[in-house]
Write a protein that binds this DNA or RNA. Structure first.
Lengths: 331, 331
DNA sequence: CTGATTTTTGAAACCGATTACAAAATACTT
DNA sequence: AAGTATTTTGTAATCGGTTTCAAAAATCAG
C-alpha cells in the first residue's frame, strides 16, 4: 500500500494525497474523501520515502555503556519520554566500554542518518580513537551531545555534573560531622571524572588543614563493587573514620568489606558514594551520596533538539550541573 | 556525500560503486581504486536509499512497559546483543501500560518499517483494542513476537514462562519444608498470567488436600511493592506461615509489612516471589523466587530473525519455558 | 457574461541507493 | 587474426514519498 495506491483509490494524484498527509492546501471535500480512503486502508506512510526526500529523520541515537548498569535505565526513560513528546524516537546502543563496539554503533547510527546522537558513555576506555568518526558524523550534519563525561577538542555540547563540587561538598559534610581521618577510593586515574572527584576531596581536606596519608587515597581499578571491596578491606584495616567513594558501586563494595571486618557503619566509619543509583536507597545501611541531577538528561535532550531544529546556534557549550548531597544512613 | 560523488571522484559509474559496496563483480584494480576514494571521503552509505530500494530494513522494534522496571534492562541487553550479532539494531519504546502510548509506538514502528517487533509488555492493561493495529502491521509484512504475556487470536509466536508450573513448584517446595497455612497474593485477576499463577498454587494446595481459606488468596490491585505491603499486612495479621507472591515486587512489599509487624522471615513466615529480578538477591532477607529464564529473550530474538529471514515457516507457535526455583533466605 | 484573481490539482523531477539490461572490454580458441 | 565466451562496466528504471511548476477549476468583480 503506497501513496499511489491511495491516490488511485481516491481518484486523485499522489501529490494531493501527500498534501492531505502534510496539511497542505486541499479542497475540504477532497481532503475528506482522501482521509476516508486512508482510514479504510489503514495506510501509514513509509518513513523511508519521506526521510529520503526531506533529507532528515526523526531518529535519535542514544549510546550508553550498559543498559543494565544502575542509573542508565532512568536516563533512557527520561530521554525516551522527552523525544516522544517532540516527535522523535530512540535507537539504543550499548558499548560495554569497548571502543570497537562504540565504533560499530556510531557507524550504524550514521548509516541510519539519525538527526542527533546522545553519547552517555561516561565509563570505560579512553575514546580519542573515535574522534575522527565523531568529526565525520558532525560533518554529515548530525548533532551530538556528550553526557556525563568531558572530551576535549570536539565541537560538541557537553553536560556533566560538577564532579569537583560534589566530592568537595560531601567531604565537607563528613568534616562537619566530626570525621577526622577521611580516606578516598575511586576508579582508575586517567578519566577526567576521576581527577575532578579527587580534586574536590583534596580541596576540602587541604582547606581544613587536615593532614592526610597518601596511602588512604586510592585511584585504581574499575568503578565496581568488587574493586570497592578490595580496596575497602585494605583501607579500613588501617583505621580511617570515613571513606569518600568515587561512585556508589565502590561504596557498596566498601560497605561489604566493613561487614566482613565487623566494622559498624556509620558508628565506626562513615561511607559516601556518588551518583545516587536506585540501589543506594535500598541497601542496608542506605547510602549517603551525591546525586547526578536528572536534569542532565532532560537538558541534554532539549539542547540536542534545539540544535537539530536550528533554534540554538553558536559555539558548543560545556554545562555543569549542581550536585545534590543526599544524606541517608551510611554517613 | 552520495554514491554519485564517490563515482565521480573515482571516475566510474554509481553502479560500480554500488557493486564494490556489495561485493558484486568488479575488476580488482577498479575495486581498489573505489575503495580508496570511499576511505578517503569517509563515505558511509545512507540506509534511506538502501532500504527504500531493497524494500526491507535492519531495524527491530522492542516494546517494554517501562525500562526502569526491574528485569527489563536485562531483556533489552540480551536483545540488543543478539540483534547486533545478526546485523540488526534496536528501536526502543516504553508504553507505561498505556494503550494510547503503545498505539503511538506501534504506529511509529510501522512508519519506520521495522523488520520485526518484540512486544514485551506483560504488565498493565488489556490490549485487545490494539489487535486491528497488530493485524495491520502483520499485513505489512512485519513479523511480531510476544514475550511474557499471552494473547489469543493473533497469528503471532508467543514465548512465556510456564506460570502454572512455577507457582505449583514453589508452593510444593513450601509444603515440603513443612509450611501448612500458605497464603497467596497477586495482582489483578484479568491478566492471563495472574490466572495461571493462581492455578499452579491451587493445584499444589488441592493435591495435598490442605484446606485453605479463600480469605488468604488475594488477586487484586497492581504488581507493585505498595500493593504487596497493603495486602501483606492484612494477611500476615491473620496468621499464615507462608505467602506465595505473584511477583517479586509484591513479595518485597510483604517483607516490608512483616518487618513492620515484627514477624520474622523465614522463621515465622516464608515468603516467595516470581521473576527473580536483580533486586531479589540484594534485599535482606534475600528472596526465594521463580526465575524467568533468560532464554526467553534469546529464543525470542532467534525466532523473530528466523521469521524475518524466511528460515522459519508455518503456523505461529506458543512456547513455554521451564521455570527455575531459586532458593534463598526468605523461604 | 467576461476577464482577473485565487484556489486546487496533477505531471514530473528528485532524494540515494540497487539492479536489469545491454554494451564495451578483455580473455580464450583455433 | 578473427570469432566466441566471459568479465567488467554504464545507462536508466525503480523504490515511496515530497515539491516545484504550470495548468485547470473555482471564485470574484464589474
Amino acid at each position: 500500500m503506497t501513496i499511489y495506491d491511495i491516490a488511485k483509490r481516491a481518484g486523485v494524484s499522489s501529490a494531493t494525497v501527500s498534501r492531505v498527509l502534510n496539511n497542505g492546501p486541499v479542497k475540504p471535500s477532497t481532503k475528506e474523501l482522501v482521509m476516508r480512503v486512508i482510514k479504510k486502508e489503514n495506510y501509514i506512510p513509509d518513513s523511508r520515502g519521506i526521510y529520503l526526500k526531506k533529507l532528515q529523520t526523526k531518529r535519535i541515537g542514544l549510546i550508553v555503556p550498559d543498559i543494565t548498569n544502575p542509573g542508565y535505565p532512568l536516563t533512557v526513560k527520561i530521554v525516551h519520554d522527552f523525544l516522544k513528546e517532540k516527535g522523535y524516537h530512540l535507537i539504543l546502543g550499548n558499548t560495554y566500554g569497548e571502543i570497537s563496539e562504540e565504533k560499530d554503533i556510531l557507524e550504524m547510527m550514521l548509516r541510519e542518518r539519525v538527526a542527533g546522537i546522545i553519547v552517555g558513555t561516561c565509563e570505560g576506555e579512553d575514546d580519542t580513537a573515535l574522534y575522527p568518526l565523531f568529526r565525520n558524523i558532525i560533518n554529515n550534519g548530525i548533532k551530538i551531545i556528550f553526557m556525563g563525561k568531558k572530551r576535549d577538542g570536539l565541537p560538541v555540547d557537553i553536560l556533566t555534573v560538577d564532579n569537583t563540587k560534589g566530592t568537595y561538598r560531601i567531604t565537607n559534610y563528613l568534616l562537619k560531622t566530626g570525621r577526622k581521618k577521611i580516606g578516598f577510593i575511586t576508579g582508575s586515574k586517567n578519566l577526567r571524572a576521576t581527577e575532578e572527584r579527587l580534586a574536590g576531596y583534596r580541596k576540602a581536606i587541604i582547606e581544613k588543614r587536615i593532614s592526610f596519608h597518601i596511602d588512604n587515597v586510592i585511584c585504581e581499578g574499575t568503578y565496581t563493587i568488587e574493586n570497592g571491596e578490595r580496596w575497602g578491606e585494605s583501607i579500613l584495616s588501617k583505621g580511617v573514620d570515613a571513606i569518600v567513594c568515587g561512585n556508589d558501586l565502590i561504596a557498596i563494595g566498601v560497605i561489604k568489606a566493613a561487614e566482613k571486618l565487623n566494622i559498624k557503619i556509620p558508628k565506626d566509619v562513615a561511607i559516601t558514594g556518588f551518583d545516587d543509583i536506585p540501589l543506594a536507597s535500598l541497601i542496608k545501611p542506605s547510602l549517603t551520596t551525591v546525586r547526578q541531577p536528572r536534569e542532565i538528561a532532560e537538558k541534554g535532550c532539549e539542547i540536542l533538539i534545539e540544535r537539530i531544529e536550528g533554534k540554538r546556534q553558536g559555539a558548543p557549550e560545556e554545562i555543569l550541573f549542581e550536585p545534590e548531597i543526599i544524606i541517608r544512613e551510611s554517613a
